[in-house]
Amino acid sequence: MGAQHDDLHDAADPHGRALRLGIGGPVGSGKTALVAALCRSLGPSMRLGVVTNDIYTTEDAEFLRRAGVLDPERILAVQTGCCPHTAIRDDIAANLDAVETLEERFGPLDLVIVESGGDNLTATFSRGLADRQIFVLDVSGGDKVPRKGGPGVTMADLLVVNKTDLAPLVGADLTVMSRDAAAVRDGRPVLFTSLREDRSAHSVAEWVTSLVNTWKHANAHDHERTTPTTAA
């Protein structure tokens, strides 16, 4: 039996589609604020889509819609059945469906951001879903968190330590965090942000922009594939 793969997305195949960027991290670390900031920074120059995963599904999507940073139609929310990490790692079908739906409706897109539901330090995105991923921590969890490691901290393509404005209040030593993160991350970048003060997350936006440009260069559109289809 010969299978026809013509309308069947293999997520691992990057050819001619948007970069899929996962943003994960513990509850309250600022994932949604970072997504909003990236939409503000990148929206004018990029074609964006956003998929949110949250245990209270509509909450983050509503936050983004109200923030007015992106056409609400371009924000889809996925229910995770009480298991946010399952939806981004073990069973990514619903998230892939949402990503492809965005590409189908609004494509071609440059970047689709998938925001995970708040989870613990072990949650990471499947490579079948996200091409690159950012892990967001905040200083209020204590400056020992990077040292503890965990797949999110050690493996993410970018580690963002947010809420640096709170560091003096919670007694977190940013130098320690930076040193510990570098030690477990094998040279992968770490950025410190205060999204309350920098609502456009300039440094992260620059990193993402560079990523998208590299991605586009490496995976130039194939015109035969510019009509995205969702595997039924």
């Binding site: 039996m1 299978a3 026809q4 069947l8 997305h9 892939l96």
Partner: peptide, 23 residues
């Protein structure tokens, strides 16, 4: 929705003309 997601998955695990036809 469940049917669509299952078919997406099944077509990669057990590819067949029948599944393509159904899709």
């Amino acid at each position: 929705v469940q049917g669509r997601l299952l078919l997406r998955t099944a077509r990669r695990i057990w590819p067949s003309t029948v599944l393509d036809t159904l899709a």
